[in-house]
Structure formats: C-alpha cells, structure tokens
Design a binder for these strands. Structure first.
Length: 495
RNA sequence: GGCGUCAUGGCCGAGUGGCUAGGCAAAGGUCUGCAAAACCUUGUACAGCGGUUCGAAUCCGCUUGACGCCUCCA
C-alpha cells in the first residue's frame, strides 16, 4: 500500500493563501510543472535554491508512492530583457554580444545548468522541454486566444488584451492585485507603446531585421513571448489542468499571473490546482540576482574561489544548508551559517554510520514509530525540512543512546529505523552520504596528514615493528587508501 | 506610491494562546598519559508601544526596521 494513503500532505497554495490538504486530480498520480532557467548565463546559487527545493518536493512526493510526471522547461527563446517595445530577447542579446549563434549560447548554458544540477544531486525532470522546440504549439495557442477575443495583433506583433480578459475573468488573483490599482500605478513609459494598455503583454513579437532569432508565423517573422511557453508546454505534457505548478517567488508576477490568464483565455478554465512558490536566497541580506551582480556561482562555492566564504563547501553541505530553512522562507547565505551546517551534517552522518554496529536486543526501549511519525508529520506540513532535520538529529541521539547501551532496540525496529532515517536524508532531502570536496586546501591537509602517517610507518618498519606498520597499511587499505611502496619511497592513492 | 512577507536567545533557523524545536557557538561533565575528537548535560529568546484574554512571544491595532514584487530575474 503506498504511503500517501496514510500520510495527509498539506501544502501552502499561493493562490489560496493558505495550507490545503493535497488531493491530486488522478489518484496516485501527480503532474508537476516547474519554471526552469533562461539559459543566457550561468545559473547562480539563488537559481539553484528553487530547483533544489522542488527537487526535494519531487523526491518526497515520489517517496510517498505517487507517480509524478515532473516537467521543467528550458527557456531558450522569448525572454525579453525588459517589457518595453524595444525589449530584446535575452538569448539573442547574449549571442550578439559574444558573436555566437543563439543556439551556441543555449547549448553552453544548458550544459552548465545540467552539470550544476547533477552536482547538487537533483533528479532530472521526466520531461525537459524547450521553448524553441514548441514554436508551432505556441503559434497555435496564439491563434486560439485571438479567436476567443483576448488578443490583438498590431504591426506584426500579438498582445494579450488584459483589460478585455479582466471583464470575463479575474486578472491578478494569484499575486493579489487588482487591475484598477495597476492602471493607476503603472509607470509611464517614455516610448510610445503599440500596446493598447500598459498591462498587456506580448504573445508574439515581431522580429526586427537585425534580430537573429526568428520564426515565420501568420503575423510575419518573429518570436514568442516569454509567458507563453509555459502555458503551451505544461498543457501539452500535463493537460489543461494539472496538479502542481512551481517556481521562484519572483515569477509570481507577472509570469505566473500571465500563465493563468493565457490558460484561462485559451482553455476556459484555470490551469493549475496548487501553486507553490519557493522563496529567495539572499547574499548579504539582498536578493541574489544576475542583473545586480549580487550573486555567487555554485562552482565558486565548490572550489572555494570566491570573496564571500573562507573555504570550499561540497554540494551536499550547500544542499543541507538550504534544507535547514523551509522553502517558503527567505534564506540568507553566509559563511558562519554554512559552516554550522557543515558541522551538523558531519555529526548526522557519523551517527548514521554507527547504525551497522548497533547491538540488537529482544525488545526496544525506544519508540521508533513515534519518531518516524514526527518525521512524516514535518514533511506533510508543507515540506517542513527544518523540522525533519531536527527529527533526524533526534534520531542521531537515539543511535548514540543505543550505542552506549542506555537504550535497546529490536532487529525489526532497527531495520525500520535504518531504512527510514536513510530514506529521509538520502532519498528525500537528497543529501549524499559522502562526497569529495574539490578543495585545494583540503587536499593539502590530507596530503600533510598522509605524509605523517607514512613517515610513522617508515619509522616502525625501520625498527622492525611490523605489527605496527602492517596495521597501518591494512587499516588504511580497509579505509579505501592504498599505500604503494617503491624504491623512491611510499605514495598513496584512494581506491 | 501600491501590493505582500517578515522581525525569535552570540549566529542560523522552526513553532505555538498556557507545556524542551533543532543545529552551530559557549559553559560544565565523561573519556583520554595530555590534547583533539566523540558523547552527555545546561539556554526561558521571541523589535517597540497599546489592546483582547484568567494567561500572548503566539490574536488585533499602531510604530519602527528589513526584505520581495510592482521593469529582466529562481
């Protein structure tokens, strides 16, 4: 029997503004769409937080026994640098500046994104569609929206008519805005806009002669608007209404608002049942952002080559650090905070490593079921990973108590305990049980330590204390470090 | 200016109308030839001012501050 039948999952639905009991459209199956990156530059750590948060959510849903179709797009066209009429496609701009084919830009940063996601131990989505791969579908849905009367074309571009839409539907319900306020508070644009109303947004943009990314359409050569791809790809792979839509908090408006409008305009009903928004990662108290330069790249963190941190941190530590905050809370990234996370994770890992050598008894004095109930309760409460981690530390305390024979555990309980605690740390939180740090300084430390051990062994051999020298060699071997004796001396390698 | 979120002990970070969050750090202890490590024990904190209440850090109001969105951003 799948776990989800016992576990009542509640999640915070942004559009309702409250936690709701989760009920999928089809029993046991979930469709989840997450807005992916625009691949015009390297993903920074803030971007990663969102994807790691939804990876954890995907993992937990899967852990509960749901069959999840997880779609996360790659935006490789259509994302404008700004909303003005002269707004340029981000990919196109980067290609122009670096004298590359747009698809070279896309390829470079898609590879970077995949590489970083792999380092963070995220599970690839079931489908990872691209905007350029769905131009035909985007053109089709634009036609539909025009037919329904919610879009107009002008000078080879097509705009969504927000005011018209708002007469029959409610624009702004996700982000809590009403159209009147928006009209009165909209900043005046210097340039004369071809849009009927400043709130209108582009479904299709005419390509100027110099624009290198262009596709033919009924309205002339051009490229699709940013919001459209998500509407098209989510409905194509998950249906016109699906269970969960995720993304960063900063996409709530206008991006997700526009998605709702497009979906309702084209299909007549709301596209999403549960909207989930992951909060921002800040650096020195300010939102990480490519445009302001206040950001740190994952590679810089893993290598220690950055101005913010005193040492290198492995992907697992960074991920564990992120999991210590709830996904809906703003999290500030700092040297002290991640250092604390590193020590905590080590303690947790050390405790779990003790599981294999625990003595079993005929009866348990510890209540493992009560412990796991609390762990599940934490996750069922809108994926409260900080509480889950607190329970994992309680688990560590239990392990130590048994190890010191202050408490007892039966074989049956131990098996369940081990399975559960590992499932939560490895499978749900996605923390690997060990990982190598590509830390130059760290390697130097190990080298220094190994040199000392090797010297001690050499001394022992010199005085024919082979008990000691063999012990060193054999135990290192067992620990995965192989000594190599040669006429030049002794070296070591990891196995 | 509009909309929204948040202010928790040295740091990070949960949660709750009355009962221990957790991690890091710190102090004491166990262990140890000495250290280190490890493990155990210890924290009554919740921006300020009012109000509701038998009781609020938790609810309401105001003040102050921070952040996010309103323009591209995960």
């Amino acid at each position: 029997m799948p776990l989800y039948q016992d576990e009542k999952l509640r999640l915070y639905n942004s559009i309702a503004g409250e936690k709701q009991v989760f009920k999928p459209i089809h029993e046991g199956q979930i469709g989840m769409y997450v807005c992916g990156p625009t691949v015009y530059s390297n993903v920074h750590l803030g971007n990663c937080r969102t994807f790691i948060s939804f990876d954890m959510i995907y993992r937990y849903l899967t852990h509960l026994g749901y069959k999840v179709r997880y779609v996360r797009n790659i935006t490789d066209a259509g994302h404008l640098t700004d909303d003005a009429d002269e707004g340029e496609d981000k990919i196109s701009k980067k290609a122009r500046l670096e004298k590359l084919e747009p698809m070279e830009v896309v390829q470079q940063y898609t590879l970077d994104f995949h590489n970083v996601m792999q380092r963070f131990n995220t599970i690839p989505p079931s489908i990872e569609p691209t905007a350029t791969g769905h131009i035909v579908e985007q053109i089709e849905i634009i036609k539909t929206i025009i037919e329904k009367g919610y879009a107009y074309q002008i000078n080879g571009s097509v705009y969504f008519d927000v005011l018209k839409f708002n007469k029959d539907h409610q624009y702004g319900k996700l982000s809590g805005r009403n159209i009147e306020d928006m009209i009165t508070s909209t900043r005046e644009l210097e340039s004369q806009s071809e849009k009927q109303s400043p709130q209108d947004f582009a479904l299709w943009k005419k390509a100027s002669p110099a624009h290198i990314m262009r596709w033919p359409s009924p309205w002339g050569d051009g490229f699709p608007g940013w919001h459209l791809e998500c509407t098209v790809m989510s409905s194509k792979y998950l249906g016109e209404t699906f269970d969960i839509h995720g993304g960063g908090m900063d996409l709530k408006f206008p991006h997700h608002e526009c998605e709702i409008a497009q979906g309702e305009a084209a299909h007549g009903h709301s596209p999403v049942n549960y909207w989930l928004h992951a909060n921002m990662l800040t650096l020195e108290g300010k939102k990480m952002s490519k445009s302001t330069g206040n950001s740190i790249l994952p590679q810089e963190l893993f290598s220690g080559d950055n101005d913010f941190m005193e040492k290198a941190f492995s992907p697992s530590i960074v991920r564990f650090f992120m999991m210590q905050a709830q996904y809906r809370s703003v999290l500030d990234f700092s040297n002290d905070a991640i250092l604390a996370a590193e020590k905590g994770l080590t303690r947790l890992r050390d405790a779990i490593a003790l599981l294999d050598q625990l003595q079993v008894s005929s009866k348990s004095s510890v209540d493992i079921k009560a412990w796991s109930d609390k762990a599940y309760a934490a996750m069922n409460d809108d994926f409260n990973t900080p509480i889950l981690i607190a329970e994992l530390f309680e688990g560590a305390k239990i392990i130590h108590s048994i190890n010191e024979e202050k408490e007892t555990i039966s074989q049956k309980d131990l098996d369940y305990f081990e399975t559960t605690i590992k499932a939560f740390l490895y499978d749900v939180l996605g923390i690997k049980n060990s990982d190598a740090v590509e830390d130059v300084k760290g390697t130097q430390h190990i080298d220094a330590a190994m040199k000392l051990i090797i010297d001690l062994r050499a001394t022992a051999r010199a005085r024919k204390d082979f008990d000691t020298s063999d012990k060193i060699r054999d135990e290192l071997q067992a620990a995965g470090i192989q000594l190599k004796d040669s006429s030049e001396g002794t070296t070591y390698t990891t196995i």
